[in-house]
Design a protein around this nucleic acid. Sequence first.
RNA 1: GUCCCCGUAGCUCAGCCGGAUAGAGCAUCAGUUUCCUAAACUGAGGGUCACAGGUUCGAGUCCUGUCGGGGACGCCA
Length: 610
Amino acid sequence: MTTILGDIFGDFRRLVLAALDDLAVAGALPPGLDAARVAVEPPRDPAHGDLATNAAMVLAGQAKQNPLQLAEKIAAALAGRELVSAGYRGGGFAAVVAKPGFINIRLEPAAWQAQLRGILETGPAYGDSTLGAGRRVNVEFVSANPTGPMHVGHGRGAVVGDALAALLQKAGFAVTREYYINDAGAQVDALARSVYFRYCEHVAGLPESSLLHSSGTQQAAPAAPEGFYPGEYLKETGRRLYERDGERWLDKPETVWLQRLRAFAVDEMMALIRDDLAALGLQFDRFSSERALVEDGAIERALSVLEGAGLIYTGVLEPPKGKLPDDWEPRPQLLFRATQFGDEVDRPLKKSDGSWTYFAADIAYHFDKYRRGGDTMIDVWGADHGGYVKRMQAAVQALTDAAARLDVKLTQLVNLFDAGQPVRMSKRAGTFVTLREVVDEVGKDVFRFIMLTRRNDQALDFDFAKVTEQSKDNPVFYVQYAHARASSVMRHAAEELAGQELSDAALADADLALLSDPAELALIRQLASWPRIVESAAEANEPHRVAFYLHEVAAQFHLLWTKGRDEAQLRFIISGDPDLTRARLALVRGVAIVVASGLAVFGVTPAEEM
RNA sequence: GUCCCCGUAGCUCAGCCGGAUAGAGCAUCAGUUUCCUAAACUGAGGGUCACAGGUUCGAGUCCUGUCGGGGACGCCA
């Protein structure tokens, strides 16, 4: 109902609603019926027709009429209406009533052919929707801590977040992609100490080191600090610190260097992360710093809102049920009344040392997002943060007086395999696989697509051997291959029909009535459902549906291709019959446009040849 | 103990605000290549939708409970 072009299901829903109005005016239906549940969908069994509506069954109760008889009335009223929308150009339809009360609709081929023409005329924008009506949505994703390179789990969140954002954009929302930098907690202090340790280590290893000269022997490296980040990458960071600052931090107390090194380390880590993001082709509209919020007093501002609503108090929490932490001590804390908003317990805002909890900062951050104009926020988190969802939603509800909504998408684990053998990962054993290593190995297109072949809340197996295999078992190549095949046909056609204009605009004028084979019409139907897929996937926040849809389009196209192998008259290029060839090229281009449009949502480049 | 996610074919998973005879891929079996890319396609077998109730014209889908798997549970993020 909101699509710019070619949502056949929306068009027919409008038509059904208009028919219902006709019936109401004629007195055949009581006025003021609630038609919200009236749906027009493809029937599961294609033998039933192209479209089906449940209108009679949904309204039978309200209208106090027999569903079958009501269906007959609606079908008759439908038959009296015409497809006035330009997208059908004279194509008609037939409506038939079936058993429980379904009304099955079958379009004449001309209506489908007109849909294909519309696809060619619309091009890459095909599938765009006005569902979002320009409403703003803030999608926050990745938000990997700036303590090291991204790992594969971050990569999944990154891809899911980016595809979700792209999908929402295609569906007409004004999307902001945002990254939250957790650069304020104790962990970045630990990071700074780790860098300092590596820095000292580096200096000690230098032949010209003052440590050597002053004592005559190499000084033992200082002990690794608490919470030490053991990754090799920090050796490089320590070296870079030496190159920038020389020996000025040596033998100085922590109070002298901690703040400076923290800033340096976070900058270095963010540079690493930005490289990783770039390798995946990711771009953010905004990076928000936790530290900047803290230093700006944003926490106090946000908490004062809660304070004013009487939602903050000092109290003592019950110890958690089940396993009691070893060092549990009851202690009065500053608490947020999350239980008033459906959370299990009230949540602490200050640590025992008096500093703010991560939660307090996150409250400030979400309040900041809201004040910047986001009443719809989506956060993409790793599933290990699942326990955090309720309290954050509670906070958003409390902060905005329920004017804003926070949705949280949790991404489950990625299990790495190589030819069926699990790739064991252990930070301690040093067999940690970074996102960058995986992306460099398989390519960003493969990585992105595979990450979207599963619902985000399902664990996903990622097998290096399988995802790089060039066969139909690999969904990436299966879909890519369909696009490449389409491109290949167009290259051949350019030779066969040398001198003829084969642009999409030109092909839209081909005699599409020549596309009459059932397999051809089935393919057009498949292409015609793209706008509907965009809207439903966007509404459900489920980009993976696009992957399954593209797989179906590719299958239908490969099928038609192979039919042409058995029945030469079904090939796309028919020597000596330029009119038929042009009609079929229009279909081929339609496939390429839809596949490319879907891949664009995923940030995957459509292949021209393979 | 509480909360969240999950349970669909031998395996991996889809199933679109409830809709008609529950689908796809893999695996198994039987086929297709002088021809636009066989990197593909066709057909067959394979199901107590974990279990038990409930809601209604209709439940894999919604509600309750049970069982099983995973995850999270103050001062980490």
